[in-house]
């Protein structure tokens, strides 16, 4: 996830200072991973250096003065290009679970137990996400559904593997 592009996208709705950007980002996209202040300011410095944002005034308050940042035309072009650039599909060829299953079979342990334990852990996580989804608004539902569909994909692989364990055991032994 490109933090810089996300901040640029947020600045398209109007100039903001760093603290405000962090607050809106965390609210919309942060979920369990809020941005660190250092990350916000270092990203803004980079965007400023690259001409994608500019300073648009200073807000005086009770505390230290706060710079406001506005997106430039170059920044708008950059964020537009980013939005229409597809994300690389993630291909998970290095799965810890796959390794565990193969090693369990190679050592004569119960690979089905490995899969059962994992299924249980996945379903526990899915129950938590489902509860969170139900308590949240539509944006919470979207992010939770995204995670739920990925966990479900893992479980579909797990069930397919469970159905192939005997064949897999023979192949690993050979």
């Amino acid at each position: 996830m490109s933090i810089g592009h996300a901040l640029l996208g947020l600045l398209e709705t109007g100039p903001r200072h760093g603290y405000d950007l962090k607050r809106v980002y965390d609210e919309r996209f942060g979920h369990d991973r809020p941005l660190a202040y250092g990350q916000v300011y270092s990203t803004l410095s980079r965007l400023l250096r690259n001409g994608l944002v500019e300073e648009s005034g200073v807000e005086a308050g009770g505390g230290p003065e706060r710079k406001r940042y506005a997106i430039t035309n170059a920044g708008v072009t950059d964020v537009s290009e980013w939005l229409v650039t597809p994300e690389s599909p993630q291909i998970y060829l290095q799965s810890a679970l796959y390794t565990k299953v193969v090693l369990a079979l190679m050592s004569g342990r119960d690979a089905e137990e490995v899969l059962d334990t994992q299924r249980s852990a996945h379903l526990t996580a899915m129950r938590e996400l489902t509860a969170r989804k139900r308590a949240g608004d539509l944006t919470d539902q979207l992010i939770c559904d995204h995670a739920l569909f990925h966990l479900e994909a893992d479980l579909r692989w797990l069930e397919l593997t469970a159905a192939r364990l005997s064949d897999l055991a023979r192949q690993v032994a050979g």
Binding site: H122, L123, M126, R127, T130, L148, F149, E152, E159
Partner: peptide, 17 residues
């Protein structure tokens, strides 16, 4: 169910094989 997202609405699961 064979759908994990549906099973996630349950309190617990029983696996049959």
């Amino acid at each position: 169910t064979h759908e994990a997202r549906v099973a996630a609405y349950s309190d617990r699961e029983v696996v049959v094989r």
